[in-house]
Simulated assay, not measured.
Amino acid sequence: MIKTGIIGGSGYTGGELIRILLNHPQAQIDFVYSTTRAGKPISSAHQDLLGLTDLQFSGEINPEVDVVFLCLGHGNSTSFLKENHFSASTKVIDLSNDFRLQADSVFNGQRFIYGLPELNRSSIQSAEAIANPGCFATAIQLGLLPLAKAGLLGEDVHINAVTGSTGAGVGLSETSHFSWRNNNVSWYKPFTHQHLGEIGESLNSYGKSVGKLMFLPNRGNFTRGILATAYTKYSGTLDEASKLYSDFYKDAAFTHISDEELHLKQVVNTNQCHIHLHKHDDLLLVTSAIDNLLKGASGQAVQNMNLMFGFPETEGLLLKAGVF
């Protein structure tokens, strides 16, 4: 049984992380740190956990925990680690974008490994610190990595993806409150989204030519999940593409190829990524679907924790979708 700590546990990713760890047979929550809710019950922020835990938010950290999860806003993990120190044996899993890019991956002499298990499993197993991937980045990379490894992404790639409102965090904004979001769809940050940097580094890691990534993110009028579509020129057959993807993900615990067209309810509340392939003339259309809060955040963080501590990769993560 390992002891875990959570920094910033009052947001969506923190709440999902608490929910998973409460039911993880190999992990115990030692503290959930919050500067604004210290002394208050966890259920005061996460009403879905009422009756499931008596834990309270803490105003102090235990620097001796086995692993600490940083569920802070982007840019805040760096400042928190500058002001707070953990033991040399404490592993760090950061859910922000502070350490995802190679240029930012070394902090205070510690190297953060990019935590996409389907790409870096062996490195994650021996890592002391993990930079958990972004939600859009996870869905898009899992859809394109097999083509990148095979050197089949030399042409431009057109990507369209829609995410639920939880991707914007718990803080209210003009585009996240109910009256605006309900019965509404819009795009944002066209072709400039911050996840493009980490996506590009992963796709280029195989040393093969990669075309321009033209990514259009969309806000959906639902709460959670990401459905991403990407298409590019492809001269092979659909059977060849299916074999390429099946071979690439043959050992993946959570990424699966579907012969049927996808919908979001298949993956919401799970750590799964489902992928579907479609061939039209000289184009290959790749569809991928994930839960942005689980495979796109907290679930993947626990998946990384499992790999780091030698637990079964699926421990605590065998969650069923609610498709009805």
Results as ranks from 00 to 15, higher is better:
248 F>Q: 02
303 Q>F: 09
111 R>V: 06
316 G>K: 10
55 L>F: 08
309 F>Y: 11
294 L>E: 10
122 S>H: 08
302 V>G: 05
82 K>C: 09
289 A>G: 09
143 G>V: 13
271 N>I: 03
61 I>W: 10
22 L>V: 09
32 V>C: 12
57 F>H: 02
86 F>V: 13
236 G>F: 07
124 I>N: 01
314 T>E: 14
96 S>A: 15
18 I>Q: 11
100 R>S: 13
47 Q>V: 06
28 Q>K: 15
8 G>C: 11
8 G>S: 08
116 L>V: 08
223 T>K: 14
215 F>N: 02
197 G>P: 00
63 P>L: 01
303 Q>A: 12
201 E>H: 04
232 T>I: 10
53 T>P: 00
147 L>Y: 12
311 F>D: 04
51 G>P: 02
86 F>N: 03
133 P>N: 02
258 S>N: 07
148 A>E: 06
247 D>C: 07
179 S>P: 04
262 L>T: 06
296 G>H: 06
151 G>W: 06
9 G>I: 07
128 E>W: 03
112 F>S: 03
320 K>L: 13
135 C>G: 11
134 G>A: 12
221 N>V: 00
236 G>T: 04
165 S>W: 04
95 L>H: 07
9 G>P: 05
261 E>S: 11
187 W>I: 03
296 G>P: 05
205 S>Y: 00
79 S>A: 07
223 T>A: 13
242 S>A: 14
117 P>G: 01
52 L>G: 01
322 G>V: 12
317 L>I: 01
173 S>N: 13
248 F>I: 01
105 S>V: 01
70 L>C: 02
149 K>T: 09
74 H>W: 04
111 R>C: 08
77 S>I: 12
123 S>Y: 02
298 S>M: 04
267 V>T: 15
286 V>R: 08
237 T>C: 09
70 L>I: 03
78 T>K: 15
35 T>A: 12
19 R>Q: 14
109 G>D: 09
216 L>F: 08
303 Q>M: 11
17 L>M: 12
308 M>K: 09
173 S>G: 15
319 L>C: 04
301 A>M: 05
226 I>L: 08
294 L>T: 10
119 L>K: 08
118 E>C: 10
173 S>C: 12
175 T>Y: 14
98 D>I: 10
144 L>Q: 03
103 A>Y: 03
290 I>N: 01
38 A>Y: 00
176 S>G: 11
293 L>Y: 05
194 Q>T: 14
202 S>I: 12
121 R>L: 15
316 G>A: 08
73 G>N: 10
77 S>E: 11
247 D>M: 02
1 M>I: 14
271 N>F: 02
249 Y>C: 07
312 P>K: 12
317 L>E: 06
264 L>F: 02
279 K>D: 02
27 A>W: 07
261 E>W: 00
232 T>C: 14
260 E>A: 13
219 R>D: 03
158 H>C: 04
